[in-house]
Amino acid sequence: MPLADISLAYWNTVLIFAGYIAIITLGQYVSMSSGSLSVAHAAMAGAGAYTGGLLTRDFGAPLPIAMLGGALVGFVFGIVLGFLSVRLHLLVAGLMTLAYSEVMVVVAFSLDYLGGANGLTGVPALTSFWLVYLMLAVLVLAIWRYDTSRLGYAARACRDDPRAAAAMGINVAWVKSLTFALGAAVAALGGVLRIHYTLVETPDGLGFYQGMNFLILAVFGGSYVVWGAVFGGFTLTVLPEILRFSAADRYILYGAVLTVIIIVRPQGVITRVPLGADGGARWAWRLRKRLMARLVAGGAKRPGEER
C-alpha cells in the first residue's frame, strides 16, 4: 500500500484530527457507560465549538475559559436531554437524541449570529498538537478512574440491568442523566479544541450522520473499556489516511472492516477480558495490565483483577 505524503505538517494535521476525535469519542463512551444510546454527540461537540468559538472571538476569552464554557454548555444540554430520555426505551431514547441533533442543526442554520449556513468563522487559532494530546491524556486518566469510581460502577450497573440496579438502591434516572451529561461535556470540550484548530464550525457538522459516526467509533473500538473509545477514535481516523485509495474505495474498506470486526468481536475491538481466550490474547492482556500497573499506580486497579 503506498504511503504518500509523509510530510511532517501533514501528519501533524492528521494526528490533531485524531486527537480531538478521540476526545469526542471518549465523551460518547462516558455517556454510553450507563447504557444510553446517543447520536447526539456530534451536536454536543458542535455546541461546545460554537460556545467556545464565540467566547474567544467575541469576548476575548482565553482558551481555558472557552473550554470550560463549552464543556458547561455541553453538560447543560446533556442533562436536559438525559432527563427527557431516561425513561424511554433504548431505541426511542436514541431517536430523541437524533431529533435533538437535527434541531441543533436548524438552530445553528437559522441564527445569523452563529454565521448561518456558512458557519462560525473568524475564530483565533489556539489549538496545538501538544494541547490536544495533553487534554487527551488527562481525560483518559480521569475516565479510567471514573470507571472504577462509585458513579462509574453505578453507571455500568444501570447499563447491564436497570431494574436490578434500582433494587440495589441506585437512582437510575439520576445516574443515567448525570453520566450522559458528563459525556456530553467531554464531547463539547473536544468541540472547543476542534474549532480552534479548524477555525470554522458549520451546522451540518452537528447532524445525526456525524453523530452516528461517533457512535460507530465508540462501539467499534469497544464501549466497555476506556481504551476502546481511544482506539476507535484514533484508528478509524488515521487508518483511512494511511490507506491512500480513492475516497470511495476507502469507505468500502471502512464499511467492510466495521462489519467484520463487529461480528468477530461484538463488544468492540478492545474488550475487558479477551474474548478469544487464546494464549496470544491472554499474553497481550497480561502485558497491558503490568504496563498499566507501572504507569499509573493506585486507585484505578479493578478489584478482583489480580491478587
Partner: peptide, 23 residues
C-alpha cells in the same frame, strides 16, 4: 446480575447506596 462487571464488582456496585463520595 450485572453481566459486564466481574463478581466482586457486582457487590461493590451495590455499595452505591451506602457511600457518599462525589465524582
Amino acid at each position: 446480575l450485572f453481566e459486564n462487571l466481574n463478581v466482586i464488582e457486582n457487590v461493590i456496585a451495590a455499595r452505591f447506596v451506602r457511600t457518599r463520595s462525589s465524582l
